[in-house]
């Protein structure tokens, strides 16, 4: 019953993500007020923060699935880890690009050697390496376990990237919502636009991971089926020599 509910909910993820994304766009571009100091470019926050959140959630998912793979739990954990890593890489790249645009407007520079920026860039490089590691040739089980170890090790970078703005002196602002004191210093309509944006990205990310896992575990997927033996030239039938 739980499985059928999950299957039904899964098929509705796409339309739900699209609907929430439409609402989020209206809230971010029309309803949310203009920022007093930063002006219109502050609206990039409604994409930048959900992108970073989705990346962190995706990498946490990679870590949990990696543990399941190492414990040899039955289930498509390896495929989920791969799909989540792909999503995380795309979202980290997006968060960095949006942050660069926003930074150029707010700080006057596209890039700064700032702890948050550097740790996030390290995160991106690490998970690109993780995906590259997965594509190396070798025994299927060994590749899976090697990727699981890497997925678990790299996940240590997620809290470092998140808390970097609290641990070190940084140009980047501290967390707005996930801060130690639970009183976000943000206008209510801005907070609403931000939270709906986070929900839209989360739903869309879940949709992507689900579709990708279905693809990776499908019987026709190259990742699910071992490679077929190389074709050989047909052996000619042996005939008795007739002689000249």
């Amino acid at each position: 019953m739980v499985r059928s509910w999950a299957a039904r909910a899964g098929t509705r993820l796409g339309p739900a993500a699209l609907g929430v994304a439409a609402v989020a766009a209206v809230l971010a571009l029309v309803v949310a007020p203009r920022a007093a100091i930063q002006g219109e470019p502050q609206r990039l926050m409604y994409v930048h923060v959900p992108g970073a959140w989705t990346a962190f959630a995706a990498f946490a998912c990679v870590a949990l699935c990696s543990i399941a793979v190492l414990l040899r739990r039955p289930g498509p954990y390896d495929a989920v880890a791969r799909a989540a890593a792909e999503l995380g890489v795309a979202m980290t790249a997006l968060a960095i690009a949006e942050g660069s645009l926003w930074g150029h407007s707010a700080w006057g520079v596209w890039w700064a050697w700032d702890p948050r920026l550097v740790t996030t860039a390290l995160l991106l490089v690490s998970y690109v390496a993780y995906l590259a590691l997965r594509s190396l040739p070798g025994d299927e089980d060994r590749v899976r376990r090697r990727a699981a170890v890497a997925g678990l090790v790299f996940s240590v970078e997620v809290p470092i990237a998140h808390f970097s703005v609290l641990w070190w002196r940084t140009l980047h602002q501290p967390p707005t919502v996930l801060r130690p004191s639970l009183s976000p210093p943000i206008a209510p309509l801005m907070l609403l636009a931000l939270l709906v944006g986070v929900l839209a990205f989360t739903l869309a990310g879940a949709w992507y991971v689900r579709r990708r896992v279905l693809q990776l575990t499908a019987p026709t997927s190259p990742a699910a089926v071992p490679a077929a033996p190389a074709e050989r030239a047909p052996v000619p039938p042996m005939r008795e020599e007739t002689g000249a």
Partner: peptide, 30 residues
């Protein structure tokens, strides 16, 4: 870049990244 131009570039970039992810999944299916 003016304020709204920066916003437009940022949002178009987000749409492009998501479109790429969606296309990746749907393309490989066929």
């Amino acid at each position: 870049m003016t304020g709204w131009t920066t916003v437009a570039v940022g949002y178009l970039l987000a749409v492009a990244v998501w479109a790429l992810l969606v296309w990746t999944v749907l393309r490989r299916r066929s």
